[in-house]
């Protein structure tokens, strides 16, 4: 039985992933902002077979609360071996370009808050010599594009942070998984026009579940994004800068 902490538990991808772990009879500790939503999710996960479901509400931008959050997870679950970090915001690129305060907010939520959480989590898992940390980054972090480079740079920085953390924790038997979803049909992307490349949160959740089981390093979800991003990363910059992406 896993003892799993899920941060950003009301996100569509986190919800779908939590269902899969609940079916295995794992114990889950959920963190989100909205108590009504967490209550609905917790009841569902219990019916689906979770050994235990506990939730707390927290605004993750209050970094001072992070230590207490991790402490509570350890106490309530009587230990901790798996962490999924799924919170994030997708703000409007244009607003961020014009107003640094907005850009900073994107960076704080998507990058700095995760660094704060992972610092606390990594130190504890390193000491106990087992565990798995899975973090949702994005294909947007693979290369900067004019349409969303603020969000992209937060996710890119996050991916590099995770690379380093993986390198550090490898000897402590702790795996670090970087999850890079492509376009996912969730409330976060409700205003986008959907096409062939769009995936359901359930599909992404299956991929995350398998990657955690297999202790993978980096996964693109669905798999074909590896191929798309391979091409995008390898377009020479003198061409890339002229493209409307």
């Amino acid at each position: 039985m896993r003892k799993m902490l899920i941060i950003g538990a009301t996100s569509a991808i986190a919800q779908a992933t939590a269902k899969l772990f609940a079916q295995q009879g794992d114990a889950l500790f959920l963190v989100g902002r909205d108590a009504d939503k967490l209550e609905a999710i917790a009841a569902d996960l219990k019916v689906r077979g979770a050994a235990k479901v506990v939730y707390i509400t927290l605004d993750l931008n209050e970094f001072a609360q992070h230590a207490d959050l991790i402490e509570q997870a350890y106490t309530r679950l009587e230990g901790l071996d798996t962490v999924l970090i799924a919170h994030g915001v997708l703000d409007n690129q244009i607003t961020g370009q014009q107003d640094y305060a907005k850009a900073e907010q994107t960076l704080r939520t998507n990058f700095l808050s995760v660094v704060s959480l992972l610092t606390l989590i990594a130190n504890r898992l390193e000491k106990q010599h087992y565990g798995c940390i899975a973090v949702i980054s994005s294909v947007a972090g693979d290369r900067g594009r004019q349409s969303n480079y603020i969000y992209g740079s937060a996710k890119g920085a996050l991916s590099i942070f995770l690379q380093g953390l993986r390198n550090r924790l490898h000897s402590a038997n702790v795996c670090v998984l970087t999850i890079k979803p492509g376009f996912v049909d969730t409330p976060m992307t409700v205003d986008f026009k959907k096409g062939l490349l769009w995936a359901k949160p359930e599909t992404i959740a299956q991929g995350i579940y398998r990657a955690i089981q297999k202790r993978k390093n980096t996964v693109y979800l669905p798999w074909f994004w590896w191929f798309i991003m391979f091409i995008i990363r390898n377009i020479p910059e003198f061409i890339f800068k002229r493209m409307k992406l």
């Binding site: 609905a40 999710i41 009841a43 569902d44 019916v47 689906r48």
Partner: peptide
């Protein structure tokens, strides 16, 4: 309504 797909109690 498809995303209102949670169990509540069994």
């Amino acid at each position: 309504t498809r995303e209102l797909n949670r169990f509540i109690h069994f």
